[in-house]
Design a protein around this nucleic acid. Structure first.
Length: 268
DNA sequence: TTCCAGGCGTATC
DNA sequence: GATACGCATGGA
């Protein structure tokens, strides 16, 4: 990881990283693409810390960011110390995965907050990405930040009406109540053996296999989690009827991200 | 108008 | 344990 502090910014040179692919691929929903003098600029949040970040000719600019925040927060959030080039090299032993890596090789797994991720993927079910973003934006506007489990546990289906989240509101409230009461402990689930962690997450109403897997992958950084949605079902049926190849072992979730992006854009 | 969107709960067999 | 169906909302 090669970076410099210049004026109030951090400038980073980082291979295997692309902002469009990483921030607009359906793993996080609070990043917004801005008009920019650079190749691209996004503004968004991790927890409630704002960031504006730009990409230009292989260089990344973290605007108005101290070296301390960069090292303590953003380095981890963007998973900057994981060697994705090495992972792609291993995955590329498989022909289809090789193509997917070449197509969307700038995706990195964001290390998101588990509670926010749980809410986000409850909202995602039977929904589309623009509407998921809208619901989360209304939620954050309402509170002025992403609400804690304790805050959301006070809500009712009626009080959440402004979200227009439909049948998902009751699931958010159940997740909040179980988290706030300690009935589920996200920090402990994060460390559990994966089968046990899946079961614990699925005790929340509205959390099935797909949402649980997304929370494990995007909110708990479990790279072996493998969310299967309609798109990945298509990939599996077409290329991997017998399951993922051996080279994906331990990195199933990263492979999933490359494959998801690849198949979606191939069929457009 | 009808269909669909990074699914899940419930009923039924 | 497998399969069918309804579900809130809004854009195409």
């Amino acid at each position: 990881m090669e970076y410099k502090a210049i004026n109030n910014n951090i400038e980073l040179i980082q291979p295997d990283f692309d902002l469009d692919e990483t921030l607009d691929c359906g793993q996080a929903f609070r990043w917004e693409r801005l008009p920019s003098e650079y190749e691209c600029t996004y503004s968004g949040f991790f927890l409630d810390r704002p960031l504006e970040i730009s990409q230009d000719k292989g260089k990344f600019i973290f605007h108005n960011t101290s070296e301390k925040d960069f090292l303590n927060i953003w380095k981890d959030y963007f998973d900057l110390e994981t060697d994705y080039g090495k992972i792609k090299g291993i995955l590329s032993q498989d022909e289809t995965l090789k193509k997917a890596c070449e197509f969307a090789g700038g995706i990195r797994l964001l290390k998101q907050n588990s509670w926010e991720c749980l809410c986000s993927f409850i909202i995602s079910q039977n929904n589309n990405i623009p509407r998921i973003k809208g619901i989360i934006a209304r939620l954050c506007d309402h509170y002025g930040h992403f609400p804690s489990a304790a805050e959301m546990a006070q809500e009712t289906v009626d009080s959440l009406g402004y979200l227009r989240s439909g049948f998902r509101a009751k699931y958010l409230i159940d997740a909040a109540q179980k988290t706030a009461s300690g009935e589920i402990e996200l920090d402990k689930i994060k460390e559990m053996p994966i089968e046990e962690a899946r079961k614990a997450l699925m005790t929340v109403k509205g959390v099935g296999p797909k949402v649980a897997e997304c929370v494990l992958l995007f909110g708990m950084h479990r790279a072996e989690a493998f969310p299967v949605d309609v798109w990945i079902k298509r990939v599996m049926a077409e290329y991997y009827p017998g399951g993922l190849p051996e080279c994906a072992a331990g990195n199933e979730g990263i492979a999933q991200q490359y494959l998801f992006h690849y198949i979606r854009n191939m069929e457009k």
